[in-house]
Simulated assay, not measured.
Amino acid sequence: MPRSGAEARRRLQQAALDLYREHGFDQTTTAEIAARAGVNERTFFRHFPDKREVLFDGEAGLRATLTQAVTEAPDDLQPLDVLLGAFRKAERILEDNRSFAEPRMQVIAETPALRERDLAKSAALTDAVADALRQRGVADRLAVLAAKTGWAVFHQAVQAWIDDPSQTLDAQLLQAFADLHTLSAPTTNLNPESRAPIAP
Rank of each mutant, 00 (worst) to 15 (best):
G61C: 13
E193M: 15
P197Y: 03
E32R: 03
F25T: 00
D18S: 11
R92M: 08
T29C: 03
A178T: 12
D96E: 15
E59I: 10
V158R: 12
L55Q: 15
F56D: 11
A185K: 10
L83V: 13
T71R: 13
A128G: 13
E7G: 01
D57Y: 09
A73L: 09
P49S: 09
A120H: 06
G58W: 15
G24V: 06
Q27P: 00
D164W: 12
L114D: 01
L19F: 02
A109D: 01
R42S: 09
R92T: 15
R117T: 03
W161L: 06
A139T: 06
N191Q: 13
V129Y: 14
I93P: 01
E53K: 09
N40F: 00
P2R: 02
G85P: 07
V70A: 08
E59Q: 13
Q159K: 00
A196Y: 11
Q156Y: 04
L183Y: 13
A128T: 06
A15H: 05
E102R: 15
G5H: 04
D50F: 01
L145M: 12
I108Q: 04
L125K: 06
F154I: 03
V54N: 02
T67G: 09
L84V: 09
D76T: 08
L84T: 05
T71S: 11
L66N: 04
G150I: 02
K51M: 04
P112Y: 09
I33Y: 05
P192E: 03
L180P: 15
V70I: 14
D26T: 11
A160W: 10
V158H: 09
T71C: 07
A8Q: 02
R98V: 15
A86S: 13
A171C: 12
R195M: 11
R52E: 02
D75H: 10
H23L: 00
P74Y: 00
P74A: 04
A6G: 02
F44Q: 02
D170L: 12
N40S: 00
A123I: 06
A176Q: 14
L94V: 15
A157H: 10
V144M: 03
A60P: 02
M105T: 13
F56P: 08
E110K: 04
T126H: 01
D76I: 07
R9N: 05
F100G: 06
D164I: 11
F44I: 05
L55Y: 14
T43D: 01
Q135S: 01
A185H: 14
R36N: 00
L119W: 14
E7S: 08
K121L: 08
F100E: 10
A90V: 12
W151T: 10
K89E: 08
M1I: 13
A73S: 13
D81Q: 14
T187N: 09
A143D: 03
N40T: 03
T188C: 08
A143L: 07
P103V: 13
V107L: 04
A123P: 04
P165T: 01
A171Y: 07
L190K: 11
G137W: 07
R10F: 06
V153C: 11
R42A: 07
A35K: 03
H155F: 15
E32N: 01
R88N: 13
R104P: 02
R134E: 10
A90H: 10
F44H: 04
D179K: 04
R9E: 05
F87W: 11
D163E: 12
D76Y: 10
L142C: 05
